[in-house]
Amino acid sequence: MPQKVTGVIARAKGAPVEVTTIVVPDPGPGEAVVAIQACGVCHTDLHYREGGINDEFPFLLGHEAAGLVEAVGEGVTNVAPGDYVVLNWRAVCGECRACKKGKPWYCFATHNAKQKMTLEDGTELSPALGIGAFAQKTLVASGQCTKVDPAAPPQVAGLLGCGVMAGLGAAINTGGVTRGDSVAVIGCGGVGNAAVAGAVLAGATKVIAVDVDDRKLKWAKDFGATDLVNSKEVDAVQRIRELTGGFGADVVIDAVGRPETYEQAFFARDLAGTVVLVGVPTPDLKAPELPLIEFFGRGGALKSSWYGDCLPERDFPAYTDLYLQGRLPLDKFVSETIKLGDVEEAFHKMERGEVLRSVVVL
């Protein structure tokens, strides 16, 4: 029968979040109920609260999570009660043109649970990214559950569910960083520093971190950046070129998503280099005006990275194993662990740039 649990909702645009009771239905066909153990506070959750995604309030926030499968619905075979899983927001369909081309990470028909979680009065909730994990339990499509090694603590493993995977994937999957490459990362928050870590993991020999905040640059150094550039103090493009023999970086990752940072990325890459946009622009922003001859003359590739072009069933277990081997410092992303009632303050800390990740532990 349906369960009543505690969760965090955004009831209206810009209003402080609320801790309240939500109703989680029994899983239907293809669905699973997951008992959440930990969930990271991601900037996307703040976007939901501020109405930057859509206006389908109230939202059940939280999506960067790990936990235990409690129950599954009819026809579910990929997970079973008791499995330790990381949640993802792109359950692939296996049937669309991308999946049938053997590129399921581009799936054009990803899906979530069909049933809705509700407030006690029956008001339907919109779960953030189809997950809604700032809650003791949540309902998802079974394909949103990816089994990983339970030796990885949930406050660490759950981060693979969104921001960290986006950054790792931007470097490794989208950017194709490989041994000996030079890489510049513009914007060193959670996603940007994950891109730094991904570039180091892939074997880049020069990893240049760019930001306007020295605190974030120090974090980037902790993740393996070889060079730090404060773009408030120097011309970032010029400095990246100086650090790469005058040529520019092989791969430049824009983890901010603004016209000015994209223009920096465009001109800071080497000839035939790659630009990767992983920072999410707001709908009002426009691409910078650049001479068309520069697109032609520089060659290379301009790419967007959505969720790090990841395939959860492939990537989550692999990166969990690398963490357990001591090769991927996921624990460095955890700035603090908090309770459900601390989410609003965690948003303020995020806005002030004080944390890489606050993680709710249940």
Score class of each variant (00 low, 15 high):
L60W: 11
I9F: 07
P104A: 05
N54P: 07
P127E: 04
D83W: 02
C96N: 06
G28A: 04
A204V: 04
D149V: 14
G14C: 00
V140R: 01
V207Y: 00
E289N: 12
L129C: 04
A225V: 14
L119Y: 04
Q144E: 11
F223M: 04
V148G: 02
A195M: 03
Y319Q: 02
L217V: 01
V361G: 04
P58N: 06
E233P: 15
D181E: 03
C42T: 11
A202H: 08
N78P: 14
D270I: 15
V278T: 15
R352L: 01
L61S: 07
A12V: 12
K114H: 01
V164W: 02
K218Y: 10
A38H: 02
G297Q: 00
W89C: 09
D342S: 01
A71G: 03
L356V: 12
E345R: 11
A98L: 02
D250H: 12
Q325C: 08
I186C: 09
V8I: 10
A135C: 13
G248N: 13
K216A: 00
L87G: 05
D331N: 14
E95A: 14
G198V: 11
K349D: 10
K101V: 03
K4C: 15
G246F: 02
M350V: 09
V212T: 12
P104V: 12
T110L: 05
F316A: 08
T178H: 12
C310P: 07
V17Y: 01
L46A: 13
V343H: 09
G341L: 01
A166W: 13
N193C: 04
L201A: 13
D45Y: 03
L243N: 05
Y84T: 13
I22F: 02
T44L: 04
G341W: 00
S231W: 07
A204C: 06
K206Y: 01
A301K: 09
T226A: 01
A66M: 05
D250N: 07
G176L: 11
V164K: 00
L139Y: 04
A204E: 01
V355S: 15
D321F: 01
A301F: 02
T110A: 06
R314K: 06
A220H: 13
P259Y: 08
V191R: 10
V278P: 14
P288D: 00
G52P: 02
V34P: 05
